[in-house]
Computed example of a mutant assay.
Amino acid sequence: MIAMHLVLIAGILIFCFPIYLTFVGSTLTHFEIIRPPMPLLPGPHFVDNYTQALGSGINAPVGRMLFNSFVMAMGIAVGKIAISILSAYAIVYFRFPFRMLAFWAIFMTLMLPVEVRIVPTYEVAASLGLLNSYTGLILPLIASATATFLFRQFFMTVPDELVEAARVDGAGPLRFFKDILLPLSVTNIAALFVILFIYGWNQFLWPLLITTRPEMNTIVMGLKQMMPTADDYGNWPVTMAAATLAILPPVAVVVFMQRLFVKGLVETEK
C-alpha cells in the first residue's frame, strides 16, 4: 500500500512540475528565465506580468481570448449534450422507420473527425456567413456521436416498469423526459460536460480556420502566436502568465464538478 502511494505521489510530482515551472516563470523577469539555472521559487513580478498578460497579446488581449475560449467551450459542451440526449431519447423511446439505421449513421461519424471533413465544413460555414462569429466557432462542432451513444446505453438500462408507470400516470413524452429521464441523467450529463468543455477549450484547428479577425482568437491560438519564432526572444514571463491563465478554467471545471464527474463514470445503479 505504501509503495502504491509513493508511486502515485511520484506521478503527481512529475505531472505537476512543468505546470509549477510555468507559474514560476510567470512571476520572473525575462532575463531571469533565459539565464540558467532558472529559479525554482516564485519571483516578485506576479502582478506586473499578469496585468500585462491580461491586457496585451500579439493580436488581441489575453483577457479577450480567454472569454472567446470560454464561450466556445460552453457552447460546444451544452450544445453537444442537448442534441445528444434528445437524439438518444428519440432512438430509444420512439418507433419510426430506419431508427437503427439513423443510430448507426450517427455512430459511424466517429470515424470522421473534424479534421477529415474540415474543407466542406468550412465551405458551408463560409457560405452561411458564419466566419468570425461565435456561431461559427460552436455550431459545426456540437454534434457528438459519443455522447449520443452513451446516453442511448444509459436510457436502455431504465426499467420498463418506470416507463409504464409514467404512462399510467398520464405523463406524455416531454413530461417523461423532463421529470424522469433528466433527473436520472444528471451524473452522466456532468461527466460529459467536463469532457466536452475541455474538448472545446483545447480546439485549435477549427478556430484557426473560422476566424480571421484578431478579436475572435481563442486562447490556444493566442498562446501559439505568443511563442517566439526565429531570432525573436519573445516575452517569456507574459507568455507563461497567459499559459497559466489558460489552464485555470478547465481545472476549475474539473475541481468543482469532480464528484459528479466520478459518479457519472463509475456509477451503475441509478
Rank of each mutant, 00 (worst) to 15 (best):
Val253Ile: 15
Leu130Thr: 04
Met72Ser: 13
Val114Met: 11
Met240Trp: 07
Phe94Met: 15
Leu128Gly: 06
Met100Gln: 15
Ala90Trp: 03
Ala125Gln: 03
Thr187Ala: 14
Ala53Val: 04
Ile180Asp: 03
Ile142Ser: 04
Thr29Ile: 02
Ser84Asn: 11
Thr157Tyr: 02
Pro42Asn: 06
Ile14Trp: 03
Glu267Thr: 12
Leu208Asp: 07
Leu137Arg: 10
Pro36Thr: 07
Pro42Gly: 07
Met1Asn: 09
Ala125Gly: 05
Ile180Gln: 06
His30Cys: 01
Glu215Val: 08
Ile2Cys: 04
Val262Gly: 05
Ala125Met: 09
Ser133Arg: 03
Leu130Pro: 06
Met227Glu: 04
Arg213Leu: 13
Leu131Lys: 09
Ala243Asn: 06
Ile106Thr: 09
Phe261Lys: 02
Ser185Cys: 11
Gly57Glu: 02
Ala246Lys: 03
Pro173Ala: 15
Glu164Pro: 06
Val116Arg: 04
Gly55Arg: 11
Leu174Ser: 12
Phe96Gly: 13
Leu86Tyr: 01
Thr135Val: 14
Pro39Asp: 08
Ala143Asp: 01
Arg95Glu: 15
Arg167Gly: 05
Ile189Tyr: 07
Glu32Thr: 12
Asn68Trp: 08
Phe149His: 05
Arg117Ala: 14
Met227Asn: 00
Ala165Tyr: 00
Ala171Cys: 14
Leu209Phe: 01
Gly170Cys: 08
Ser56Asp: 07
Thr157Asp: 10
Val78Phe: 10
Arg95Gly: 10
Ser69Trp: 00
Ile14Asp: 01
Pro120Ile: 02
Val78His: 00
Leu101Met: 14
Thr148Asp: 08
Leu208Tyr: 05
Ile19Val: 14
Asn202Lys: 08
Val7Asn: 06
Ala126Ile: 01
Leu208Ala: 11
Pro250Ala: 12
Pro61Ala: 01
Ala243Trp: 00
Met65Lys: 12
Pro250Gln: 12
Thr27Asn: 08
Leu150Lys: 05
Tyr20Cys: 02
Pro250His: 11
Arg35Phe: 05
Glu32Ala: 13
Asn217Pro: 02
Thr157Pro: 04
Ala53Thr: 08
Leu137Asp: 05
His45Pro: 09
Val253Gln: 07
Ser87Arg: 00
Ile81Gln: 07
Gly57Cys: 04
Gln52His: 13
Phe31Met: 02
